[in-house]
Write a protein that binds this DNA or RNA. Structure first.
Lengths: 209, 209, 209, 209
DNA sequence: AATGAATGAGTGTTCATTCAT
DNA sequence: CATGAATGAACACTCATTCAT
């Protein structure tokens, strides 16, 4: 899927880059920071990836490949539509949790600049996501479980947007909800927040206005 | 509310800063960019605001002052709770549309760094928002219109998150929904998207699981 | 002697400038620092003195006018030559103590740059000093008290140089001699150091090699 | 003794820095000045030394390392105390003549600021100097050649102070003594001035008040 | 006579990138 | 293949000074 060879050192650089881009933003992270943290020579980044920009592109490609697979597997599962939606939500949340950093960077950086290549990859990903959601919901509609008048295209923004907003405002919610440790915060996300989103989507899909 | 005098040139700088911070991020925007775009001397920013950091603070204060007032007025209105929630959503969306730039900056820049002062201003704003939501929902609960077991703290993330995710992925949705002009996109946000969010929140507040 | 009018504000500026130039050097002191410390408008310095450079010139002229008078009075006193030399040393040390700052600036700044006007004033001062020393020593030689083969031109460097070196290395000697307070340091200068210099010059003037 | 590698370009930078710091002071010299004079890229200074401040530190270390050795060798020499004192004076003067620039900087820049690291290196140097002087004089006192009541700590200020004052007022003495060429001035320093200081110190050490 | 507003030039430093080895 | 050395450009910011009022 990616046309660049990824040896160990490249992956090491990508991991460090993800962490730092996430913490300090793309512009706020210098190649020096990356090379120091990854314990590699400063020229390695340009040498391996061509430029800082292309490092970001590689990072995005590297981190978004397998979500597609996960979704395709979900579609094949033989479970009820609502259950599938719930699992879909869990997959999303889990993915973003796993790749905390990159999603932040993705949303912020990709829309500002004309990073055509990665942007396309990202667009493809989003289209794939949408198709999966569409497929699941139409299945539910066919079974008479879901309402017919649903704006399917706005389901994903609700799921990911809700989660993302919570995630982006982490310090605020840490204080508000008294989530003192990393573990507590993660638990809240995986339990309360996930439940809230599932409940929201269910209400939206099922409730007759 | 703001303790700095805002003459025309300051406001001009703030507007340019909002635009550029929004487009290219805080770190990605240089004082040179701002001064060039605003057609002012490069030293003016530091001269007027003290530093780039303080410019951001001033920008946040400048752009968030009247949201609070709008919400307070809403609370006093003598209308049904559901109607109030819908109006609240409209206010949010309208505000973010008006100040696209600053909200984008707020979301992406303000949480990763220790920009204490600006961060506090933003936290206060979010706390105020939460209080308003809480007040409205409890009113609805008292009237028996809304369910009792609502996680109030997660309502705002759903409203703003959904809207924001849509807004952040503008190019994607422009293509997907064939929204060719600025006007069409804005109309979609003000109609379909708003309706979707209102419908979502209503379902969440009213629907018995 | 000075061709500029010195009103209260000018003198206030000069005093602040002396203090700051002394503490942080000429280049290390900004007009902003001076205007803040002197509680005057930042444009006042340029307005009153023309420029930062000219402020320094004015400062030098202002601070060196009355040394000449003191020396002329000393010459007229009817006391023994050795006593006169000792008094001369006391006058020097006292003057430099009084105008701590300016002498440091004088020596450092005046030799580096071509500040012709103040440099001339300073040269005149030094010539006057030399004449006084010469006059005193020749008096002593005439009376047979002092040796004939003295290099009069190098007496002043010995007096002022010794004192100045001590003064410039204040932190070092504070530690070495355990002079914990301002007062202790000043007392050491006025007593031990003065005595040492007087003893040195006496030995030089009197001792037969 | 120095923990930084000194290649040719670094030494070139150090030499230029010494010259310019000496001429225009530390604050008065910009990295741009240095880079222009040394014909190197402006970023090289920060690249090589870390900062302008650290360049000064390196300069001090670089220029003061071998004085210590010279003094230690002097102490071991088997010559009369008075001869040793005279040689000590010659060493001082010679060193300062050789490294005119750095000593000038040392005296004027190092005491007013908290340049801790450089300051410490300089303090160590001064302490070493003092020990050498002390050792020599006590030897002379033990042999009954020098007086017992000498304030040893004020010997160095007299030696260096006298020399330095002369050196700092070079233009004045050039005119006064009609020293038309560089060579004449240097000769005067190495002959008359040195002799004067040696004579002064001898008188101070030997003459019974 | 005095000053707040404004500015162009300059500051030290960091940047991503290049290139000879 | 990999890298240390090196660099021009850009960074945020401060400077002394000017000028309209």
């Amino acid at each position: 899927m990616s046309n660049i060879e990824l040896n160990d050192k490249k992956i090491q650089i990508l991991n460090v880059a993800e962490k730092l881009f996430s913490d300090k933003g793309f512009e706020g992270t210098s190649i020096r920071d990356i090379s120091k943290e990854a314990k590699i020579n400063i020229a390695m980044v340009s040498y391996y990836f061509g430029s800082k920009e292309k490092l970001l592109e590689a990072l995005i490609l590297h981190k978004t490949v397998d979500l597609k697979l996960q979704l395709e597997n979900l579609l094949k599962e033989n479970i009820e539509p609502l259950e599938k939606v719930n699992k879909l939500i869990e997959i999303y949340i889990n993915r973003i949790c796993l790749n905390k950093g990159i999603y932040r960077v993705l949303h912020f950086e990709l829309n500002n600049k004309k990073r055509e290549k990665s942007f396309q990859a990202f667009t493809e990903l989003k289209k794939g996501n949408l198709k999966s959601v569409e497929s699941i919901i139409k299945q539910g509609q066919a079974q008479g479980v879901f309402r017919k008048d649903i704006n399917i295209q706005l389901i994903t923004p609700t799921i990911i947007g809700t989660f993302f907003h919570f995630h982006m405002n982490r310090p605020f919610f840490e204080e508000l909800l008294d989530l003192k440790t990393e573990e507590m915060f993660n638990n809240y996300m995986k339990n309360e927040l996930t439940k809230h989103i599932q409940q929201t989507i269910k209400a939206l899909l099922v409730y007759e206005n």
